[in-house]
């Protein structure tokens, strides 16, 4: 959708620019000054419409992207553009992701028992556990 708006907006602005060029060429050949009459209103309106369409296109391109959960499941956000204002609903995304913003208070990597964790992995993978 946003791409279509970008294209339409750009075409409108280019067309308005070319129309303005042609208008000034016409004034030159008829020896009129552009300050006498100014740009025709249809060109001004075309420029304004083109800008509005471009802005709409850029706003609609701001979408919340999909994300990957810890279990490699692609999660599509429930809301396309903005998160819900209500916190209880906004946090639903973290539960789908299986990582919440307060997870580090629970995981506490600085206190990891690295030796035991390595033993657990070695046991699982069938490696020899070297006692030090």
């Amino acid at each position: 959708m946003s791409k279509i708006l970008y294209i339409v907006g750009s075409i409108l602005l280019l067309h308005a620019g070319y129309s303005s060029f042609e208008f000034h060429q016409l004034l030159k050949t008829t020896h009129h000054s552009s300050t006498d009459s100014g740009l025709p209103s249809d060109i001004i309106i075309e420029v304004l419409v083109g800008i509005v369409v471009l802005v709409a296109g850029s706003l609609s391109s701001i979408e919340i992207p999909n994300f990957l959960s810890v279990d490699n499941e692609v999660i599509h956000p429930d809301h396309k553009y903005l998160k819900p204002i209500e916190m209880s609903k906004a946090t639903a995304e973290f539960e789908k992701l299986k990582i919440n913003p307060f997870a580090e208070l629970e995981t506490r990597i600085e206190f990891i028992d690295i030796v035991n964790k390595r033993k657990e992995y070695a046991k699982w993978s069938g490696q020899e556990v070297e006692e030090k």
């Binding site: 990957l68 810890v70 490699n72 992701l97 919440n100 995981t107 506490r108 657990e120």
Partner: peptide, 24 residues
Amino acid sequence: TLLKTKLLKIAKSGVFQDFTPQQL
């Protein structure tokens, strides 16, 4: 990009500490 975002989130949160050997 999805994988990168996921790994960065895992790094920041430290959840890998609770991963099973398979997940690790």
